[in-house]
Amino acid sequence: MSNRHRIQRLGFILLGLISLIVVMPILFVIGNIVVQGIGAINWEFLTAMPRGGMKEGGIFPAIVGTLLLVLGTAVVAIPVGIGGAIYLAEYARDTLWTRILRLAIINLAGVPSVVYGLFGLGLFVLFLQFGVSVLAGSLTLAIMTLPVIISTAEEALRAVPGEFRLVSASLGGTRWQGIRYIVLPQALPGIITGIILGLLRAAGETAPILFTAAAFYLPRIPRSLLEPTMALPYHLYVISTQVPGMPPRVQYGTALVLLTIVLSMNAVAAIIRSYFRRRREW
């Protein structure tokens, strides 16, 4: 074996070790939650209302609440986000106004989630009088996820070669037809990835729903969008810090359910991406 090969070999081993160090903590956290939480998972835990000061029974309303909030977020954020991205990528000229807009979007993506929570409290809960409700929470989460969705979707649209738009126009297509039939389908995997990343964040955050949607203890499914709801991340926060004598099994079980929802959304995103990548032909 030559010297050069030996050095290369050493490099590979080093890089391998570094990546191991990077993933170790993640694996440890996940492993710990699975080991300690798996014992709590059973049919009752997933489908029953909480009982006995939330120490017994299940977390059904928190699971449903989180799914409702994510759904509500999706209904608002997906159309608005894609529309905004199409406007920025395909129609907006490069003016001072659009530059400010882009800068604002990038910065909004970095704003701490509790700020969104306070904003939602002010606008939706108090000013628009939606109260602490699924509606107010969904809208707050939608506003928090929009910057992510818009910027990833805009990037995906810009990655589609400009020639396609030109060809479509030269065949008598309007600008919208070119976008609708050529550009959007090509950009779809990137757009979907952005949507799922955004919704993932919405599913896991506590701060934005703290003042806008979450109920401390509400052992039933909300009857309307104007009612508050329990939700997994907030419930987890409550049973970890606010209720003395909580069995760790229940805490870890709740964390495991939240983690499973989030990771399976991630997996769906990965599957969609690889499916489209195999189909793409340019």
Binding site: E163, L171, G172, P185, Q186, W282
Partner: peptide, 20 residues
Amino acid sequence: VPLLRRRVGMVFALPLPLPG
């Protein structure tokens, strides 16, 4: 303009097949 472009077809320097 779309109608004009139906009356006047164009072929570009590089072959540019659309996806599909």
